[in-house]
């Protein structure tokens, strides 16, 4: 073998020029800074006292950090004629109900599509894959009609019910079950006399924890940001994101409070993601789409 191979930790290290390594690291660093800068800036803005918000030119750091903006935000909120806690409750309620429904219906369906060869299971799964290929706007027109006809106008169910049938989490879970649960394992449980629902619950579900965590996080992220909706007119049914955006519309004088609200809306999904990151990546490993 005439080719020279570098080795590191007794393994072949491949085709890596140090110039290329440095170039990539540098590029990655620059891109990372660009991505992070807006988030950093909003965090800084939320901690600036009023006079610093109006410095010219705007500063990238804060001299006297304060939580005044967060206090202002809650004061502004409490001035609204619907109690602020109501908006929080609505967002938590919609997020919880939507996520729970999607998890229960989605995992049952994913398990059956993966492990029970009933006639039509291939067709159902193809429909689900195809649904990932079209944006929600396409179905939105007549979905509006259907939800209105079903009597869900001015009801939070108009937001919750469609998320029960969202397909991305189901797709990821089905692929994960395909790859991680062998039919033989289920077969032995069935021979022991366990019913299909029992097999699903006590054998399959504990093994696909990364997949259902991923489904929960996906669903949570979508619902947590629910803003103004054409379905909801009553003020006491509206969400936290909507209430926050109302503060925003008051303009420049409330910049600090708005930054504070953005930080609050961001911090919860970030924590959720950090906690579940390794599980999500594990789920994504089986996300591939066969054609």
């Amino acid at each position: 073998m005439s080719k020279k191979l570098r080795t590191r930790r007794h393994r072949v290290v491949l085709n890596r020029s140090s110039g290329g390594d440095m170039g990539i690291t540098l590029l990655l660093f620059i891109l990372g800074v660009i991505m992070f800068l807006p988030l950093y800036y909003v965090l800084i803005q939320s901690l600036k006292p009023l006079d610093e918000l109006f410095y010219y030119p705007p500063k990238f750091y804060v001299i006297n950090p304060t939580f005044q903006n967060f206090a202002d935000l809650f004061n502004l909120m409490s001035e609204s004629w619907v109690p602020f806690s109501r908006y929080i409750f609505n967002t938590v309620y919609i997020t919880f109900m939507g996520t729970a429904g999607n998890l229960i219906l989605g995992s049952l369906c994913a398990y059956a599509l993966s492990k029970i060869p009933f006639p039509g299971h291939g067709f159902f799964f193809q429909l689900i894959v195809k649904s990932l290929m079209i944006s929600s706007a396409v179905a939105g027109t007549l979905q509006f009609v259907i939800l209105t006809k079903l009597g869900f106008m001015d009801s939070q169910w108009a937001i919750i019910l469609p998320t029960w049938a969202s397909t991305l989490g189901l797709y990821l879970m089905k692929q994960f079950i395909d790859a991680n649960i062998s039919t033989e394992m289920l077969e032995s449980a069935r021979l022991d006399g366990a019913g299909e629902f029992r097999t699903f619950w006590s054998i399959a579900m504990p093994l696909v924890k990364p997949a259902w965590l991923t489904l929960i996080v996906q669903s949570f992220q979508g619902l947590w940001n629910t803003g103004a909706s054409i379905f909801i007119q009553s003020e006491d049914l509206k969400t936290l994101n909507y209430a926050m955006s109302q503060v925003l519309s008051a303009g420049i004088v409330r910049q600090g409070a708005v930054s504070a609200s953005t930080v609050i809306m961001l911090i919860v999904p970030i924590i959720v993601f950090v906690v579940s990151q390794s599980n999500i990546i594990e789920t994504m490993a089986t996300s591939g789409m066969k054609d």
Binding site: Y111, A112, H121, I146, T167, E196
Partner: peptide, 22 residues
Amino acid sequence: YKVGYFMTIPFMILFFAFTVIP
């Protein structure tokens, strides 16, 4: 395999109502 239908139908009803049919 009728249990397969029991398990998929709750999801499928909503999926048809809100995506496929529209």
